[in-house]
């Protein structure tokens, strides 16, 4: 990868990371079975999935860009789907509730006034505990989470590969691997917090009205990633 392409790849990867947070269902009050979504903050959850992706992408660094991106995406998606399965088991047998989307039940989700799950077609409304905002991760949020994890994992792996190709000529191999790993982790963590500002701590994924705010995140992440990419490019290539 040419240095200037690598810089553009860092920017693109940062933006992908920013977008992925909008797709992964997350809500901190989920830990009390009081909201739909995985029971932790959006930025933390995306960070966890992204780290799993970067760790897995590192194994295949010698096999070319396409494989690196695919491994990052698949490992992130594996992490998210296992977390959703674990969370649903905890909800089903620990708390005794079945997964239900709060926003769909109240008829305010993206596809319209229907209270049915978009993919499975199951009615959500009767299954919600009154006074809560849904619980667990129904099928539609699971699909959305998988899409988000694939986007985020691709973004993280892209940044890893780009930084590695910037550092490869100037550092020895082991150092280049680890330093590009920590820098891509850093870029992931920076970009996963900006969407959390937009989401105000809770999202149900791509069927949530908050998806309409994605352009704000996109522009913010674009600007921030550009500044970081220029500084990294400056440090690695210019001076």
């Amino acid at each position: 990868m040419e240095p200037i392409t690598a810089m553009l790849a860092i920017i693109l990867g940062g933006v992908l990371v920013g977008i992925c947070v909008h797709f992964i269902p997350a809500s901190a009050t989920g830990a009390m079975s009081a909201a739909t979504g995985i029971a932790t903050g959006p930025s933390m959850l995306s960070a966890g999935a992204g780290m799993a992706g970067i760790l897995s992408a590192a194994y295949s660094m010698d096999s070319g860009l396409a494989v690196v991106l695919a491994s990052g995406a698949s490992a992130s998606a594996l992490m998210i789907s296992l977390t959703i399965l674990g969370g649903n088991i905890a909800n089903a047998f620990g708390t005794g509730v079945s997964p239900a989307s709060g926003q769909t039940a109240s008829g305010q989700s993206m596809p319209g006034k229907s209270t049915k799950d978009v993919i499975s077609g199951w009615d959500q409304k009767p299954y919600i505990t009154p006074g809560t905002d849904g619980h667990g991760m129904p099928v539609q949020t699971h699909i959305s989470g998988l899409i988000g994890a694939v986007i985020g994992g691709t973004g993280g792996a892209l940044v890893l590969f780009a930084v590695y190709s910037l550092l490869f000529p100037i550092l020895e191999q082991d150092a280049a691997f680890t330093i590009s790993g920590i820098i891509s982790a850093g870029i992931f963590l920076i970009n996963s917090v900006l969407p959390a500002y937009t989401l105000v701590g809770k999202t149900e994924g791509m069927f949530d009205q908050k998806l309409r705010r994605t352009p704000k995140t996109l522009v913010s992440c674009l600007i921030v990633s550009t500044v970081i990419a220029i500084l990294i490019y400056g440090a690695a290539v210019v001076i």
Partner: peptide, 18 residues
């Protein structure tokens, strides 16, 4: 902020340390 204190902490350090 709508995000935890810990997110702010690791965001800030991610910028500084990176």
């Amino acid at each position: 902020l709508g995000t935890g204190t810990s997110s702010i902490g690791y965001w800030g350090t991610a910028v500084g340390a990176t």
